[in-house]
Design a protein around this nucleic acid. Structure first.
Lengths: 226, 226
DNA sequence: ATCGGCGATATTGCATACAATTTCCCGGGA
DNA sequence: TCCCGGGAAATTGTATGCAATATCGCCGAT
């Protein structure tokens, strides 16, 4: 998943263990005992401990003092909550973009949006998926608020396992771009309220299109957020 | 600062070191070497390391791999960013309260707000300050979103050192309550947009009333957010 | 005099050993 | 049968020792 430095063994381990969890090697709720992981990865307990703490902060594992670490159980309710929070954060970012994006920011966002339009015409799903990440990152960056950028980026990573197959359905590509269009237009014209609203609609639709990976309970429809 | 369990030495240390930093024992930018802290607090390097990682996640110290830990330098810009983020998060919480608070939640919020009105009449600043925390916590809880609750609570803790002397000025108590009134009324009537807006105004005023503790550069006025 | 390489020193990262706490199992009693 | 207490085993928390890397100062060259 390599966006990390991997400079220390603990970080490598954290990444490896995270991959293993997402790959289903360690089931949700499973106990992660330090010695076992140390043996498995051929290191001592010390870096394993650090890795587990790191993962504890990302929410992937739950750590209770003196009672060990377990793979965090992602209930449907919990995933719901994360999507709601993500939506609100992204909407907030869009709002701040409308209020404070520099002219350069705006031109870049517009150019990216334009390019994504071409991809839609060519039905180029892989490139669009990649550009989509860049698009949302640009919205985060447009806030010029490193804390919000950090929160949004981290949340996005945490939710990535639940975002499979977004653009596979036939009309999804064009629909996504149309929603983006509403967001971009509102931002460019400095309409904070509409930017917020448009982004919220966008991410809620994304959410409704997701399918859960873990075999937990089926989801019920959520209330509309106005 | 005791909201922690203090069950392990690392947690105690994290709390102690945090207090020391906030008390100015360790100046911003100062190096925090593990052995030195271990000697100082009479423990070994291991729990010190864990404590430093914990503090790294709260933002109080900066950790660079193989290059040690230093007390995070809180520039005026950084504090600004944190207040902006806090404002947006709280406004979002208020919005979600307006949309999804249960009748019980609403009654409790109203009752608390009412009690705070009494405190204003009696000029009871200490109780009001305490109730104010409960008020904002109630807004977080009203989202019924544990992730947002966690984010908001953690941010509030991080900002607490920069929130000294909020209610000392003569009119502040009544003013705060009046702003709360706008928020509460909007929430109770289910007006999401107005709840968002009112809360944003409220926290922005709080921000403008803060005085920075660390002796960094003087602040400039920030742009209006609408 | 300044800059750049090189070696000593200090500090972090990792491994191992020990202590403290929890967990689990088993036996006894109601 | 179920509940409860006690003790052994397992696991986490802490201390210490060793290895790897960064930092700092010295010396020589330009």
């Amino acid at each position: 998943m390599g966006h990390n430095n991997m400079s220390t063994r603990a970080e490598q381990l954290a990444s490896d263990i995270a991959d293993a969890i997402l790959a289903g090697v360690f089931a949700p709720g499973a106990r992660l005992d330090e010695q076992g992981l140390a043996d498995r990865y051929g290191v001592s307990r010390t870096p394993v401990r650090e890795a587990l703490r790191l993962l504890g902060h990302t929410g992937l594992v739950e750590i209770r003092p003196r009672r060990g670490a377990t793979v965090a159980e992602m209930t449907a309710e919990r995933v719901d909550e994360m999507f709601v929070a993500m939506g609100e954060i992204e909407a907030t970012c869009a709002r701040l973009c409308a209020l404070g994006m520099t002219p350069i920011d705006r031109r870049r966002l517009e150019a990216l949006h334009e390019r994504m339009g071409q991809m839609v015409k060519k039905r180029n799903e892989p490139d669009y998926a990649e550009a989509n990440i860049a698009f949302h990152s640009a919205i985060y960056a447009g806030t010029h608020n490193s804390l919000l950028i950090e929160i949004a980026t981290s949340l996005r990573r945490r939710l990535s396992p639940f975002r499979r197959a977004q653009f596979r359905a036939p009309g999804r590509l064009a629909l996504s771009h149309a929603e983006h269009d509403g967001v971009v237009k509102a931002i460019l014209r400095g309409d904070a309220a509409e930017a917020h609203c448009a982004m919220l609609r966008h991410v809620n639709l994304v959410e409704n299109a997701y399918e859960q990976v873990s075999a937990t309970a089926t989801r019920r429809p959520r209330r509309a957020t106005k």
